[in-house]
Design a protein around this nucleic acid. Structure first.
Lengths: 114, 114
DNA sequence: TTATTTATTCTACAATATAGAATTAATACG
DNA sequence: CGTATTAATTCTATATTGTAGAATAAATAA
């Protein structure tokens, strides 16, 4: 078992996307969510690789979607955070928040939604 | 020249510390700032290695402190963000903020200082 | 059985993260 | 001067994350 370290920057974005998407989180939607909200490019490889690693660490769990989506195309693999993953996520977000809180100029996105 | 990617998680913490510390940012204070605020362990090696990389990318600049601190011990190397570094920092923080904003449970630290 | 669609897997390499011992540089003192 | 003490940075090595995109898989439609 690898030593549990802090979540990486991209891992944090992925985890956040999982929460936002709820029960509709799978490869394609996760990718869209990050590209749209974070305005940041996300290649397929980067995303799936990261999801696989998060699952190895037991920070997320996955389940295959129904085999007959009656629409053509491969089955989706849905992801969700595990309690363990959530704990790490909270810790990382907390650290970032503590360091970023109150930094004048821009962090407009970090202040109230106002 | 290496391709300019997104800032890593630790890089973000270090950059934030630089802003918080202003003209008193050098190895030891940066380390304390992160350990205290982010409540996260920071080894010396990790910090200096990261600072060196940020400087290579021209995201931070450094200058040696006075040669006679009249207190014993080696001279300090002060760090500060460059405009280029600040732009990248803003982008990274913006992406994170966009993904984390509104996530009910925790990001209390990311909402208004209230 | 072939084409089309949707989504995931694979493979490889680059960059960041992390550790801690080693080293450097300055002052203090006998 | 030579040695101890103090404060800080550098070095070296390895592990983990980040990134890309081609390849593959699996289902439906003709």
């Amino acid at each position: 078992m690898s030593k549990s370290r802090n979540l990486g920057e991209f891992e944090i974005l992925v985890m956040a996307a999982l929460i936002r998407l709820g029960d509709n989180a799978y490869g394609v939607t996760i990718r869209q969510e990050i590209e749209n909200r974070a305005e940041r490019a996300v290649t397929v490889g980067a995303l799936y690789t990261t999801l696989a690693r998060l699952e190895e660490k037991d920070f997320v769990a996955s389940r295959m979607g129904e085999a007959t989506p009656e629409r053509g195309g491969r089955a989706k693999r849905y992801f969700e955070m595990t309690p363990k993953g959530r704990a790490h996520f909270e810790r990382s977000v907390s650290s970032l928040g503590a360091m970023l809180k109150g930094l004048r100029p821009w962090p407009k996105t970090l202040r109230s939604g106002a």
